[in-house]
């Protein structure tokens, strides 16, 4: 049953990635979709310059609005953060993010030494908040060119999802773009390759340490409609949930940790059935059944 549930998650990830990146002609022509669905943001980190993308990346859109001439603040994109966050929290990371799917698949590849976490994990996990504040908000707003326009610093200097899903396919299928390759592409490719290799050894290094979107959704985990709780009458604090958790979260203590991506491994691993989702409509239920 556990394996089946894991396959179901992979299937949902694949279907959602295909659904939101379904413009197949873009890959063949080396171009991107220009339809009206791009008015809307998708929940996960999904570059709008991916040839197949049918929607907009929320982090890219956020930077696009705050670096525009007219607006230095965006209610629209924050509205999407609040909407997806209040409904799902980091379920988006675990089930709906294409770059999360890539990291999941890579982690299935055997590697000489699989690590539960990177050395310095205690501090490294705060890096994503620094990236959110620095590269997504402060630098785009404050470092301006001659005409007073900022740049999307996160997309430009860090985002590996943009390199993988947009840069590589577009450059492969669009010769004029190939002619413009330079140091920036080399830098971004190095980040991508580093993260892809690291994903084989550590579970989801980008989500854990670098992703600003995961940092935002993590804040919603405790209040989202989809959230976990522990049946204290059943929980024996055996730690099986933490051992099963690939992010090494002590679920019995913090079922709604900001790091949890809702993969559900802890629920399947609990021998007492003490980890369950809060049923938002069921009245007065205290125990997991």
């Amino acid at each position: 049953m556990g394996k089946l549930r894991d396959h179901i998650r992979t299937l949902v990830q694949l279907l959602f990635a295909a659904l939101t990146n379904g413009y197949a002609a873009g890959f063949a022509k080396g171009s991107i979709y220009k339809g009206e669905s791009k008015l809307l943001c998708v929940p996960g980190l999904n570059c709008y310059s991916c040839p197949g993308a049918l929607g907009s990346c929320p982090i890219g859109s956020f930077q696009a609005v705050i670096t525009s001439r007219t607006n230095k603040f965006t209610l629209y994109v924050i509205g999407f953060f609040l909407l997806f966050g209040a409904l799902f929290g980091r379920l988006v990371c675990g089930w709906l993010c294409p770059f999360g799917l890539v990291q999941d698949l890579l982690h299935k590849i055997p590697f000489p030494k699989k690590l539960r976490r990177l050395p310095g994990d205690r501090f490294l996990k705060y890096l994503k908040y620094l990236i959110l504040v620095g590269f997504v908000i402060v630098l785009p707003l404050t470092v301006l060119d001659l005409v007073g326009q900022g740049q999307p610093w996160f997309c430009k200097y860090i985002c590996p999802s943009g390199t993988l899903f947009a840069g590589i396919p577009l450059i492969a299928s669009n010769p004029p773009l190939r002619a413009a390759l330079g140091w920036l592409f080399t830098w971004k490719s190095a980040i991508l390759v580093g993260l892809l290799v690291l994903s084989m050894a550590v579970y989801r290094p980008f989500c854990r340490y670098l992703c600003p979107l995961g940092a935002i959704y993590g804040w919603f985990n405790p209040i989202a409609l989809y959230r976990f709780r522990i049946d204290t009458a059943k929980c024996t604090r055996c730690g099986a949930c933490q051992r099963a958790c690939k992010l090494d979260i002590p679920v019995w203590e913090t079922p709604n940790s900001t790091e949890c991506i809702r993969c559900g491994d802890c629920r399947r691993a609990c021998p007492h059935g003490a980890v369950c989702t809060v049923n938002p409509v069921q009245k007065g239920r205290k125990s997991c059944t």
């Binding site: 791009k38 008015l39 310059s49 890219g60 840069g167």
Partner: peptide, 15 residues
């Protein structure tokens, strides 16, 4: 958002 999304984002693709 739309204008940004329907033009290839050169920063995003590393150019």
């Amino acid at each position: 958002v739309f204008r940004k999304a329907v033009n290839i984002c050169m920063e995003c693709i590393g150019l």
